[in-house]
Design a protein around this nucleic acid. Structure first.
Lengths: 203, 203
DNA sequence: GGGAAAGTACACAAATCTGTCTACTTTTGT
DNA sequence: ACAAAAGTAGACAGATTTGTGTACTTTCCC
């Protein structure tokens, strides 16, 4: 259940020029896919902006789906790396750690390239025949939220209560993302943190 | 602020054969766009399944974006028509009407062709240059939620409180959609109704 | 009943997209 | 130092997509 961090890196601090072709592609893909969506970015554009030849691209990623899969994997890994880092600074046990999610969200929404959640997007984009593998990455992301939240809930409440609180908390999280994106309202995370506090009172 | 119901109809009960070309296209588009997403359905497929000639299609809709716009408009209109109908049967004033949203959601999620929200999807799909008009339809949908909810909140609480409760309620609504779609959990609407009740206690 | 409006059928233009191929150059490891 | 591995540059095949053009037929309504 541990993340296979082998091939996963945080490329955000590196300049494009300093990176090897594969990572240059991934960094560029991350920016382009995030801004325009995987369906609106063609291989040609990705290659051009990665300053890589087409041959090299296809040597590293046998198909477009492969680079999308790598993108999703790295986004997933990075999101939970950051969340873990954020939460590790929090004192106050499981409850405080769950509430810290909402501070983390507000920070995320405030990034200037925030453009919604790649996985909520994937929920819609990966419904067809040849992208089932990509839909699997989306499912994994939601499972990771399950791991993160349920582990902590189990320390606080009875199993029956976990089954109620988990979907509620996940709704508050995903709802925050949609509202932040749709209304441009970054502060929604803080408002929803209050709700999370109230459904966890007594824990 | 009233919906221009002129050209908007509920086509769900009609058979494809009984409809005139334009409505046949809209009914087919609704089914295909809902299942696969607007980016994964080509004009050719839409035309073939509508049993309409290409010329006829382009006579009614000058471009693909136009048919998508019509689809979004009808979805928006239909959603709030249904919600209004649902809510009109509820006794108990503004608070009960807000809570009734969540019963409505559960009903929606239970439809066998439920596949997430076209507008949450549009939030991601319509970010590019030539689809700004479509993004406008998404914004309108969120505005309609604002109209529906804020009108009722104003009858219950002070304006300052409306600014807090509206994003929270909208998060619960949109979060329900994502969780219902992502986890296949229809019951999430009922769980989130409880939260809505609790943030409206005393109203 | 007859003419205008609407629809059919389908070829085709133009753009775009994924992925392959060829021929050449640079980098790397030992 | 030198061979193998990796990368460059760009043409091109084949599929797909949106939208137009042409020639013919059906429907509607006055």
């Amino acid at each position: 259940m541990k993340a296979e961090a082998s091939n996963l890196k945080d490329l955000r601090a590196d300049t494009i020029e300093s990176l090897k072709p594969r990572d240059r592609i991934l960094k560029t893909a991350s920016a382009l896919f995030n801004e325009y969506g995987v369906n609106n970015i063609g291989i040609d554009r990705l290659i051009a902006e990665s300053s890589v030849s087409k041959r090299t691209f296809y040597n590293h990623f046998p198909s477009k789906n492969e680079v999308i899969a790598a993108y999703l994997e790295s986004k997933d890994w990075l999101r939970f790396s950051e969340l873990d880092k954020h939460v590790s600074r929090v004192k106050g046990g499981a409850k405080a750690e769950i509430l810290a999610i909402f501070d983390f969200l507000e920070q995320w929404f405030s990034e200037d390239d925030f453009n919604g959640c790649a996985f909520a997007r994937g929920l819609n984009d990966f419904n067809q025949g040849d992208v089932k593998e990509l839909r699997g990455k989306v499912d994994l992301y939601f499972e990771h939220w399950g791991d993160f939240i349920k582990t902590r809930l189990k320390a606080l409440v009875e199993p029956d209560e976990v089954k109620i609180l988990f979907p509620q908390l996940l709704s508050l999280i995903t709802g925050s993302v949609i509202v932040a994106q749709g209304l441009g309202d970054v502060k929604v995370a803080a408002l929803n943190k209050r709700i999370a506090e109230s459904i966890l009172t007594g824990c």
